[in-house]
Every structure is written in structure tokens, then in C-alpha cells.
């Protein structure tokens, strides 16, 4: 698949709307994610970033609008629906169960049972298999060592927890990984590690939606930058076409970008 100008979006949303009572979260919002890219979503607090990705990940059902994955119309009723389409999400709140261990968290909601009668009749979990597989995928990402796979998640540092959540999202043959502010609570070193993790995921062929308030980080890893404002898309630019100040200006409404100067097609 060579980079022609007609690369189709992997994930697309058209005219997505979502209100919470009188509060408007999304107002006819457009969104595209192309294969193999990191698309950053930036915007002020309350601009609707989390609402947008919650619709894309099945955690919220939009009031109106359509969503497509690989060109197929989708209507996610749950996060499991989205997962079945290869869309995995790391939420702002991480959504890990602190008292469960790393392996249990990686497989939470999609546990694997033993083969044969033990699994079918006695519903016995394949703990060994899940631990081995969890260890393998964490090692692959270079985030944790083998002996800690049965460590409860609450005994991990913030960066390690984030790594577990990212690994979970990248572990199950997913094609799209959505990250909501993955570095917000992290120090400099841990942030750098998570950014590297994002690049690794992309290099393994995954497409990534990255929500962040951190402009330097966005400009460091993003291929395209989707600027969200008042529940809709204000513009899509690239780190090459615009500066950080431009993006902040678009976020606040001080600057508008004509459609022909935006990057609405694939760059990779």
C-alpha cells in the first residue's frame, strides 16, 4: 500500500454530537485517523476531547453522527464492541483495578480459560498462559521485568501503571490505540518513556490517537494535530505547517485556518 493521496481513514467520525443534559460535549464534530499515524488531539479544558474519544472507544454513545472503522459503519454499544473492531483505549483515569495484579489487569474483561473440560465446564482460568503472554507483551515493549507480573498494580509507580495501561491497549492485536493524557501525571523521565512507547506502537503498525495538553510532546510525536474547540474540529495542522503558538491561537479562537491550508489527508 504505497502512500497515494487517496489513503482512506482507518477511523472516521462525521458530524458527531453528544450532549449531557444542557452541556454540549460535542457539536457536529469531524475526525479522521489514518493508518500508521499518530494523530494528536489538542484543545482547551472542556473542548470535548475526552467526549470525542469516549465515543470512538464505545464508552459513550453519540446522540448523532456516524463512525466508521476501515470504511465500515460502526455503532459501538460498549467498550467491548470497540475492542472487537481493534480500537483500544487508555483512559485519563487509566481504568486499572489497583488491587489486581498486572497480568489480571492486562486481561481484565477478556480472560482466557483453560483448554478442555477444565475451561468449558469448570470455567477455569488459564492463569499460567495469561501470565506468560502478559510477560511477553510487556517485555516486547520493554517496560517491565518478568518477576513482577503478579505484582498488584497499586504497588507500581505512576509511570509503570501508565505502561501497564498502554501495554494492555497495545497487546491484543489492536489496530488503533487511543491515549487520553498519558503523561499528565508523570515526571520528565517517565513521560519520555511513554512517548517512546507511543513511537514503538506506531512502528509496529498501530495507529494512535494522542490527547495531550503538552505542546512540546505533541510536536515531538504527532504526525497530524487535530485542534478541538467548543465541541468541534477547529483545524487539522502538522508540526511542520504551524508553530506551537499557532496551535494555541487556533485553540482559543484567535486564529482560523482555511481548509486548503489544513492537513485533512494522510501524511504517512
Amino acid at each position: 500500500m504505497s502512500a497515494t493521496t487517496t489513503t482512506q481513514p482507518l477511523v472516521q467520525a462525521t458530524d458527531l454530537s453528544k450532549s449531557f443534559g444542557r452541556v454540549v460535549g460535542l457539536a457536529s464534530c469531524q475526525f479522521e485517523l489514518y493508518p500508521g499515524e499518530v494523530c494528536a488531539v489538542v484543545g482547551d479544558n472542556g473542548a470535548g476531547k475526552s467526549t470525542l474519544i469516549k465515543c470512538l472507544s464505545g464508552a459513550l454513545t453519540p446522540d448523532a453522527g456516524e463512525m466508521f472503522v476501515s470504511g465500515d459503519r460502526v455503532a459501538f454499544k460498549s467498550t467491548n464492541d470497540a475492542r472487537a473492531h481493534g480500537v483500544e483505549t487508555v483512559y485519563q483515569t487509566l481504568a486499572v483495578a489497583p488491587a489486581l495484579d498486572i497480568a489480571e489487569n492486562l486481561y481484565l474483561g477478556r480472560e482466557e480459560r483453560k483448554k478442555g473440560i477444565l475451561g468449558t465446564v469448570f470455567r477455569s482460568l488459564d492463569k499460567k498462559g495469561m501470565r506468560a503472554e502478559a510477560t511477553r507483551s510487556l517485555n516486547e515493549l520493554g517496560v517491565l521485568t518478568v518477576q513482577s507480573i503478579t505484582q498488584p498494580v497499586e504497588t507500581l509507580s505512576g509511570g509503570q501503571r501508565q505502561a501497564v495501561a498502554v501495554a494492555r491497549a497495545g497487546a491484543f492485536g489492536s489496530q488503533v490505540v487511543i491515549l487520553d493524557e498519558p503523561t499528565a501525571a508523570l515526571g520528565v523521565n517517565e513521560s519520555a518513556r511513554v512517548l517512546q512507547l507511543i513511537r514503538d506502537l506506531r512502528d509496529r503498525g498501530m495507529s494512535i490517537i494522542l490527547i495531550s495538553h503538552n505542546m512540546p510532546q505533541v510536536f515531538e510525536v504527532a504526525d497530524r494535530i487535530h485542534v478541538q474547540r467548543l465541541g468541534r474540529r477547529a483545524a487539522v495542522v502538522t508540526p511542520q505547517s504551524h508553530t506551537m503558538n499557532d496551535v494555541v491561537a487556533i485553540m482559543t479562537g484567535a486564529m482560523t485556518v482555511p481548509e486548503e491550508e489544513q492537513q485533512l489527508t494522510a501524511v504517512r
Binding site: 467491548n80 486499572v96 481484565l108 482460568l125
Partner: peptide, 27 residues
Amino acid sequence: YALRGTAWGTHVYAVGDDPAAAELSGI
């Protein structure tokens, strides 16, 4: 056994631990 050896048991623990996280994990 049901609590420690099956998915149902893991979900019982997860729901008690953090219901929001459990829900987002697809439980």
C-alpha cells in the same frame, strides 16, 4: 475456586476494587 479461579471471580474483585475501571475494561 469460583473467586480465584474463574473470570467471574476476577470480575467480582474488579467491581469491588474500582467499578468505573471495571466498566471501562468491558465488564
